[in-house]
Write a protein that binds this DNA or RNA. Structure first.
Lengths: 237, 237
DNA sequence: AAGTGGTCTAGACCACGTC
DNA sequence: ACGTGGTCTAGACCACTTC
């Protein structure tokens, strides 16, 4: 048995994308939806909360669930997007250059990942080429106890895909920090900087569903090609 | 009577902050909490979902609600933070210089805010000084039909405070974009750029709870002082 | 007054981890 | 086997918007 509220969520997303409900209009009422989907109102509400959380609707008390103009938001998949998804979205040709794939011991990063100081970490360094220019340098540190084997093919293709689908690790949340920093010698070597002296650095700590810290990533972007989109819903309380 | 799940949420946040539950430990079970707070389990679950959403806990099936190391996250108040909150958090002295407070008509911005092309908008230009340096230039456009009166005192003190507490407008969500751009003449005049030739630009569209687009803000930061922190929880489905 | 979403209840069964 | 959180139900009352 699948989860009902997830199925209802997908159905409603499709309906919205098909233009069955236009932006500014309201969805059928929760009461109406519960009888239409033969389910309780709380279950409908879970589906609607998902829609709201993902920016498809905004609930307005006494009025209904208003469909938002999602084109205007041009969506973000809030936060945890992989390079592959991103470049596919942009519809541009892309390549990945793998410069390093080694096992290292770095006490400092281990401490931040809550693993023993002597633990082995995969260090993966990849340059991302989009439209013929190498504009992103990704440096990943991944706990080897959680990902025992990595090959050049895997990191070239899609690391996230391998981790989530092959290893079935459940990535749950991430904390990221975005800052601007001077370029390093490494940046000079691996990127086409076109005279830029600073890069945008995104540092992420990625956690699994069981709260294990799992990966540290530093993603260094040439500033003229950097864009970050965020959809933030205010949580009350 | 206030909302129960909000009260329970606040109680649990306080307990966590007092160190009653340490990171890595689990909270009492949902069953236990519902009898302790004399409420139903679904209500407890709403409170726990808030805790989870705000990064206090991670729920693990079969195990419990694990308290996260929130210090390690150094929190963001995800997304919609005002300058005042930010500078208070940093504990630094700050000043706001109001350079402009006028009514304008800009068809382009009206279109993005979904209001008539000829509608009046407040244009507010403020430079933010932190630790003696003017490092942020905020340019706000606000619909005058929603905010009829603005004074220099209001925009100097706290615009958000006025909008939310005095006018009682209900800010609900925002879409933001972060990019890096060359400095403009305006930046040169109003900021202490210290030789920097680029600024980090955050463009935000702010919406009210009734889905009205309400405000457009462009916040221009000197790159060496820019930081953006984000806590992203992956939503399934 | 009627309709909408927001909150809350007191159960139920299931899937998963731990023991 | 037991305890945990995940899903689901069929009601209830309230606050708000619209008419």
């Amino acid at each position: 048995m699948k989860k009902k509220y997830i199925e209802i969520y997908h159905t409603l997303v499709e309906d919205i994308q098909k233009g069955e409900y236009l932006s500014g209009e309201t969805l059928p009422s929760e009461h109406e939806l519960s009888s239409r989907f033969h389910t309780s109102r709380e279950t409908i509400r879970k589906a609607l909360n998902l829609l709201s959380h993902n920016g498809y609707i905004q609930k307005v008390r006494g009025k209904g669930s208003v469909v938002l103009d999602r084109d205007k938001f041009e969506f973000p998949v809030s936060g945890l997007t992989s390079f592959k998804e991103l470049s596919e979205r942009l519809g541009q040709s892309f390549r990945t250059h793998v410069h390093e794939l080694t096992l290292v011991k770095e006490a400092k990063i281990c401490r931040q990942l809550n693993c023993p100081a002597g633990a082995s970490l995969w260090r993966v360094i990849r340059a991302r080429e989009i439209g013929g220019e190498r504009i992103i340098l990704d440096k990943d540190y991944i706990r080897q106890d959680l990902v025992p084997e990595l090959t050049k093919e895997i990191v070239q293709h899609s690391l996230y895909n391998y981790i989530e689908n092959e290893l079935e690790l459940d990535i749950s949340f991430a904390k990221k920090e975005i800052v601007v920093e001077p370029v390093t010698e490494e940046d000079e070597v691996f990127l086409d900087l076109k005279g830029h002296h600073q890069v945008v650095v995104i540092r992420s700590y990625v956690y699994l569903a069981d709260t294990t810290a799992f990966q540290f990533t530093e993603s260094r972007h040439r500033p003229d090609k950097f864009q970050f989109v965020d959809f933030a819903r205010r949580t009350k309380g």
